[in-house]
């Protein structure tokens, strides 16, 4: 699990936005979002000390 990976993909997305490539930027945002969700599942395993 590479924690720095979504920072890289977000940077690529912002770079494409800056360079005027809208579709590529939105594609890299989607990749960033997918990695974000996966990393959330990886890090959210500790049981919470609360009752819901």
């Amino acid at each position: 699990m590479i924690i720095v990976l979504p920072f890289l993909t977000a940077l690529i997305s912002a770079w494409f936005t800056w360079r005027g490539h809208r579709a590529s930027a939105m594609g890299w945002w989607a990749i960033t979002a997918a990695i974000y969700v996966a990393w959330c599942f990886y890090h959210m395993t500790t049981p919470l000390k609360i009752s819901l």
Binding site: F7, A10, T17, G20, R22, A25, W29
Partner: peptide, 29 residues
């Protein structure tokens, strides 16, 4: 921490949506 870093990534993702609006004009997407 890792969760703090994920929050920074989420801020970056919000920023990308805003940057698209700034650079290409407002769109629902």
């Amino acid at each position: 921490c890792p969760l703090c870093l994920l929050q920074r990534v989420a801020f970056a993702m919000v920023g990308i949506g805003l940057m698209l609006n700034v650079c290409f004009g407002s769109r629902p997407a």
